[in-house]
Design a protein around this nucleic acid. Structure first.
Length: 949
RNA sequence: GCCGCGGUGGUGGAAUGGCAGACACGCAGGUUUCAAAAACCUGUGAACGCAAGUUCAUGAGAGUUCGACUCUCUCCCGCGGCACCA
């Protein structure tokens, strides 16, 4: 008997598929298209590991499946070939990045062929090829012509190790995404793309994308939209104004100072008026020296300097307030200046405490008593109250009153009038209600809390403003209390664990517990306005609206929307990238390279070791040129573009990768795009995917492409889960790489493909456990033996299990659940091995079911069974719905929800019929007496439950 | 701190309101063999029991329901992202 030998059949079919051009997508094919895209790899020297395989195998299953559905499939591959690692490796080996990259590509290509993925290599691209980067440069020119690319001086992220600037997206918690060095700020003149123009569209259009929610959430957070108010604070005796952004216009009356970030441009204009200029300038100088990371690491202690001699005016109440410069305010967010409201912002609170700045409360918390909610239509009475929390430091217990009448627990409390001292009143209430007189260490906690409730005994709604005072018991001295008080309440000393919202009746209890445990902090939640003139009594939301409207009326502010997203810095001071196609002319200024002169070639003979400036500057031949406008001597821009620019449009190039006259032919772009399925890791959730969406939208806006109504390039995204080894990501530096090569040698490609798919849910991370591959290999042997040994008869056959499997496998591929699709196929073969005859029709259908997962094996079987042509030119089987239906269903028989046994019935059986069957069943009829059941619940075909209790 | 994902046998995982543990790995016993490997068969969540069977069990605790891995709430643990964002 012939044995399953992947080593023989796999290379054979890979060669045949290549020669017959099975995978070449056809531009002229009238069938519906399916553009299936993998995130193209960066060809590193490390080669592919089993983690990379997972995505390629999954996309291949989907591509082959769609091909079998009759679709015209485009599944291309290429190389994200520019980038730092190649350059660094080349420096180390005294080689050239191009040589390094070409070698790496050769290795990758060989490995990708081994996977047996149906890539259309005729469309292969390489971003470092002048035929490709010509169009990257063209893209830059188009953005420049339309004011979407600009140059400005700005404080930018600089990686001292990589010796280049980085985009915001490439700085991960203050460190360089690539090398992990601490990133510092440098003031440099750099090129930016205006991605912020598209912030709203990039955010809004996420809603309609068939992408994983978590990826969309990451993008939403990164874009960071917040709606708020711009407010202008006039500077006294000056024409100058400080513009701030806030989301809390409701707290404006509580603003007691404003803060400028050290980088704020206004500081220059104020110099003449600042009395302590030297101190201020020293502070600014110092702040500049710190990296972003240092600034944020030093979270504990906020620092700042007051600008002596200048005051700002709060536009809402014309109060004079101080101006500070402090580095806790970020230059890069909002307007680089804030209004500080210490009572309602933690940072401002901390700062105000340190520098003795007034803290003014304007928002108080509000609670509705859920146990006694206000009743509509009743009179509403406002009252001021005081509550006392008394702790006995000796026992740790708290004083509490248990109301005999209401059967509830309260703290000592009572009403107060406006003129009364709150602490005195609280003390009085404690003594009156409990008799204790020795109360010490009193503290007023937080602000009053507004609470609404219904007072039954008075038949009225009450609005209380209750202040909370904390005491400690100094001694057990007690005086006699009144008879009424004695009759009304029991005096309890309760354990700290009973200090909770359930034991105590107060609706304000959660807030008080917070204040009791963290006595010193700002109240930052929403609430009700106080100390805010005519805005008093409004809630925060209403007040934000009304106060902003008022500011608008007096010309001191307006509603605005702010985004965290910054413009994309694309200049890089490194060699291995696409040169920015710009010429600087002493006479004409910035002159774009004319389109006809593209590409601006990257010089090959050059010392590319980094030294803080672009290596291209060293090449006289590259640097010196003539101005395309006036013909005078001029110099080229020597920075190269971020490699994310290369990858921001590559999916377009695949549609027409050889085109010499355009980035791609218009009709081909329209034919293939948008991408129907994009498969790749979550690590690109922000960087690549945001940039690609931006570029696609920009190209649409400029009418350079037109393939999608809102310019979205990727209709469906699937994030493949990562494969871990010993709990961490696979990487060569950690030495925990599992290479596919040995596994292919031992088990073959199909087995490894199968295991990659079987390891777990495709969208979740999985731990690599190589032992699992033997199960797949045994399965493939079983499949092989089945087709080798069984008698295939040319007669019709009906089999429910086979029909069901066709149905399930189809659904599971569509739902991206290859792991359960495979377990269904395994079940089918476990079932089939009990038979030795199968119809030709079924044998073929099952053969095709296997094909997307195990293409080599399936193709071999296909051929051995006498079929001409590739299995991938056949068509995906359809199940017969009637045959797939269960003839009998198993119903669980339950007593009070506990399964006692099962019974087989017709799927359409009624409750009575099932009960009859149970009565007939020897075992079950002993257990259950249907006449005793209080209630019978029958879920057709699933369960029948006798409810006894 | 905020947001997201996850927690089920010895292991990877299945089941998204109705028989918990499909499928696979591993392990144990058996068949075969001079022997071993491979293959095949049987068993395999835990506890008690000779057995029939009973009880317990999906991170912990509560709730909703005739019935909860699945829904709701509170909490614990692990992973990932963001973070002085005004």
């Amino acid at each position: 008997m012939e044995k399953y030998d992947p080593k023989e059949i796999e290379p054979k079919w890979q060669k045949v598929w290549e020669e017959t051009k099975l995978y070449e997508a056809k531009d002229e094919d009238p069938q519906p298209k399916f553009y299936c895209l993998d995130m193209f790899p960066y060809p590193s020297g490390e080669g592919l590991h089993v983690g990379h395989w997972r995505g390629f195998v999954l996309s291949d299953v989907l591509a082959r499946f769609n091909m079998l559905l009759g679709k015209n499939v485009l599944h291309p591959m290429g190389w994200d070939a520019f980038g730092l690692p190649a350059e660094n490796a080349a420096i180390k080996r005294k080689s050239h990045p191009k040589i390094f990259t070409d070698n790496a590509i050769a290795t990758f290509k060989k490995q990708l062929h081994q996977i047996g993925v149906m890539f259309d290599w005729s469309r292969e691209i390489n971003t470092s090829d002048p035929n490709y980067y010509k169009w990257t440069q063209w893209l830059f020119l188009k953005l420049y012509e339309n004011d979407l690319a600009y140059r400005k001086e700005a404080p930018v992220n600089w990686c001292p190790n990589c010796q280049t600037v980085l985009a915001n997206e490439q700085v991960v918690s203050g460190e360089c995404e690539r090398c992990g060095s601490k990133v510092i700020k440098k003031n440099l003149t750099q090129w930016f793309f205006k991605i912020t123009n598209f912030a709203e569209d990039l955010l809004k259009d996420l809603n309609n994308l068939d992408w994983p929610e978590r990826t969309k959430t990451l993008q939403r957070n990164w874009i960071g939209k917040s709606e708020g108010t711009n407010i202008e604070f006039r500077i006294q005796n000056s024409e100058l104004k400080i513009n701030v952004f806030t989301t809390r216009a409701d707290t404006l009356f509580g603003c007691t100072y404003v803060v400028l970030s050290p980088e704020h441009p206004l500081l220059n204009n104020l110099k003449s008026q600042i009395l302590n200029l030297k101190i201020v300038e020293d502070y600014i100088e110092n702040a500049k020296k710190k990296s972003d990371l240092e600034r944020t690491e030093l979270q504990k202690e906020k620092t700042g300097v007051k600008l002596e001699g200048i005051k700002a005016i709060n536009p809402i109440n014309n109060e004079e307030i101080d101006i500070y410069v402090a580095d806790y305010v970020l230059a890069t967010y909002g307007t680089g200046a804030v209004m500080a409201v210490p009572a309602h912002d933690e940072r401002d609170f901390e700062f105000a405490k340190k520098y003795n700045i007034p803290i003014k409360e304007v928002i108080i918390p509000e609670r509705i008593d859920k146990r006694n909610p206000p009743v509509a239509g009743k009179e509403k009475i406002e009252r001021k109250n005081v509550q006392a929390i008394v702790k006995d430091p000796k026992t740790g217990k708290f004083l509490c009153l248990h109301s005999k009448k209401h059967n509830w627990n309260t703290f000592p409390m009572g009403g107060i009038n406006d003129s009364e001292n709150i602490i005195v009143a609280a003390k009085r209430e404690v003594t009156e209600e409990t008799g204790y007189t020795n109360l010490i260490n009193e503290k007023l906690l937080g602000s009053p809390v507004r609470a609404e409730y219904f007072a039954k005994h008075k038949n009225q709604n009450r609005v209380s403003f209750t202040s909370l005072v904390y005491f400690e018991l100094g001694g057990n001295e007690q005086i006699e209390i009144s008879v009424e008080e004695k009759e009304a309440n029991d005096i309890l000393w309760i354990e700290p664990k009973d200090m909770n919202v359930d034991f105590m009746v107060h609706a304000e209890m959660d807030i008080w517990l917070d204040w009791l445990n963290n006595p010193k902090h700002a109240y930052t939640d929403y609430g009700i306005l106080i100390n805010s003139n005519k805005f008093d009594g409004l809630n925060s939301k209403e007040a934000q609206q009304k106060i902003t409207e008022k500011l608008k009326e007096i010309g001191a502010g307006d509603f605005t929307t702010n985004y965290k997203l910054r413009d994309w810095l694309i200049s890089r001071q490194r060699y291995w990238g696409a040169p920015i196609p710009i010429i600087y002319c002493p006479k004409c200024g910035i002159v774009p390279v004319p389109e006809k002169d593209l590409p601006v070639l990257l010089p090959e003979n050059i010392e590319f070791k980094p030294h803080g400036e672009s290596p291209l500057k060293q090449s006289e031949k590259f640097l010196n040129t003539t101005c395309p406008k006036c013909g005078e001597k001029a110099t080229r821009e020597t920075d190269t573009m971020d490699t994310f620019v290369d990858s921001s449009w590559y999916y377009i190039r695949y549609t027409d990768s050889q085109n010499k006259n355009n980035m791609a032919d218009e009709s081909k772009i329209k034919k293939w795009l948008p991408v129907d399925l994009y498969v790749g890791g979550i690590e690109h959730a922000i960087l690549h995917l945001l940039y690609a969406r931006f570029i696609s939208k920009a190209l649409h806006q400029l009418k350079l492409v037109n393939f999608s109504p809102n310019g979205e390039p990727f209709t469906k995204l699937f994030n493949i889960g990562m494969i871990y080894l010993h709990g961490s990501k696979m990487s060569k530096s950690k030495g925990n790489i599992v290479s596919p090569d040995e596994l292919i040698e031992k088990y073959g490609t199909d087995a490894l493909r199968g295991y990659e798919l079987f390891i777990g849910p495709a969208d979740q991370d999985s731990e690599w456990q190589v032992s699992g591959i033997t199960g797949i290999y045994r399965f493939l042997e079983k499949v092989w033996d089945f087709y080798t040994n069984n008698k295939i008869i040319d007669q019709p056959q009906e089999d429910q299990m086979i029909e069901k499997t066709i149905k399930k496998v189809t659904e599971e591929i569509q739902e991206f659940r290859p792991n359960t699709a495979l377990s269904n196929l395994m079940e089918l073969f476990n079932y089939l091995r009990k038979t030795d005859i199968i119809s030709k029709d079924y044998a073929e259908k099952i053969n095709i079911l296997l094909a997307p997962f195990f293409p080599h094996l399936a193709e071999e079987i296909w051929q051995k069974n006498g079929n001409a042509g590739s299995i991938f030119n056949s068509s995906w089987p359809k199940h017969d719905e009637t045959l797939a239906k269960d003839q009998k269903v198993v119903v669980a028989v339950q007593l009070d929800g506990k399964t006692k046994g099962v019974i087989e019935v017709n799927p359409t059986a009624s409750q009575e019929e099932v009960v009859n069957e149970i009565n007939k069943n020897e075992k079950l009829s002993k257990l259950v007496d249907p006449s005793k059941a209080r209630k019978i619940i029958y879920i057709a075909g699933r369960a029948l439950n006798f409810v006894l209790k």
